[in-house]
């Protein structure tokens, strides 16, 4: 084990996969120079046939990934910022997520669409969205949201090796986050949530960048005598429903912390599932800590006010515990 930054862990995982899989190609805007550092150095090792800068043309890029995958390649389509996936959304939504089904399984599409997502850096509304619910709703895509360097590497390897299209979203503000990463190659299986803290009184499910403020809140609440179980789903499709249900049945209380806008957020979906499946175990209403239905603002005080944080989580914990 060594401490590594998340972006370094991702870079090493990409490097290892390029080494392992000669059919793996990666293309995207400025991937040769690497804006974030995740693709740093790869073009020097693997050449421009396999690591290639594209024009700023998300519409064609997302569809090219489908064509190249259909023709036998494993593809990482680097979309840079999550908001740019909207620009390339047509082929993701209409082709990648549906082609296998529509052709009765004639092909697999081993594609990873990767980008950063979420706010916290004064990047303003067109570079800060958390758009994972859009992809969750399409049915034919896996959706991956790592929160630690170790998971970022392990989930990326699993995503690349998965024969299906995967949306891999790395929290934009967490690239520099340090964490222990095993020295040997390891996989984190898609569809397996992680219990980050065990607890008895309340369950918190936190997604992507929201895991960090949730961890702080859980550790603070412990000093107040409140025992909270913290779950990171790690992948939203497939979702480890059973692990969440099991926890909610034990604690009877649930808060979901999600950086998506409130309406139809991942939090809304998880809340609905738990209301349906764990109703008799619930001791209090399920609460969602999300982003209100507004564009992400630029100015730091405004943005800070919009994004879920430790204080909002703590307030919600207090609120929920007042119930009976």
């Amino acid at each position: 084990m060594a401490k590594k930054r998340m972006i370094q862990a991702i870079n090493e995982a990409l490097d290892g996969e390029m080494q392992r899989d000669k059919k793996l190609i990666l293309f995207g805007e400025d991937v040769e120079i690497s804006l974030f550092g995740d693709t740093k150095g790869l073009v020097d090792k693997y050449g421009t046939d396999r690591i290639r800068n594209t024009p700023i043309s998300e519409t064609v890029m997302s569809g090219m990934a489908v064509g190249a995958a259909a023709a036998g390649f494993n593809v990482v389509c680097h979309m840079m910022f999550g908001n740019f996936m909207y620009t390339g959304f047509d082929s993701i939504a209409n082709q990648a997520s549906k082609l296998r089904y529509m052709t009765a399984g004639q092909i697999s599409l081993p594609i990873v669409y990767m980008s950063v997502f979420g706010g916290g850096r004064s990047a303003a509304a067109q570079h800060s969205d958390a758009m994972h619910p859009l992809f969750m709703n399409l049915g034919g895509l896996k959706v991956v949201t790592p929160s630690s360097p170790m998971d970022a590497a392990g989930l990326l390897r699993a995503s690349i090796r998965d024969p299906n299209p995967v949306i891999y979203l790395q929290a934009a503000g967490r690239g520099g986050e340090l964490g222990e990463v095993p020295d040997e190659e390891f996989i984190v299986e898609l569809g397996k949530a992680a219990v980050l803290r065990n607890g008895e009184d309340l369950t918190i499910v936190a997604i992507g960048a929201m895991v960090r403020p949730a961890l702080r809140s859980v550790d603070f609440q412990k000093t107040e005598g409140v025992s909270i179980e913290l779950i990171d789903p790690r992948t939203l499709v497939p979702l480890d429903k059973e692990m969440i249900f099991k926890s909610v049945r034990k604690t009877g209380r649930l808060i979901i912390v999600d950086e998506a806008r409130d309406t139809c957020s991942a939090a809304s979906h998880i809340a609905a599932l738990c209301a349906e499946e764990c109703f008799s175990a619930l001791k209090a209403p399920i609460k969602r800590v999300t982003v209100n239905d507004i564009a992400i603002p630029y100015s730091p005080p405004l943005e800070k006010n919009v994004l879920p944080n430790e204080e909002r989580i703590n307030n919600t914990v207090s609120e929920i515990l007042k119930f009976a």
Binding site: V60, M64, G67, Q95
Partner: peptide, 25 residues
């Protein structure tokens, strides 16, 4: 035959990607 397509222009980008595969292969 990658297929017919219900999205007008939907096959253009897919073909470009298949062409990339042809070139690399």
């Amino acid at each position: 035959i990658i297929g017919a397509n219900g999205i007008v222009g939907g096959g253009i980008s897919i073909t470009t990607g298949a062409g990339l595969a042809s070139k690399l292969t």
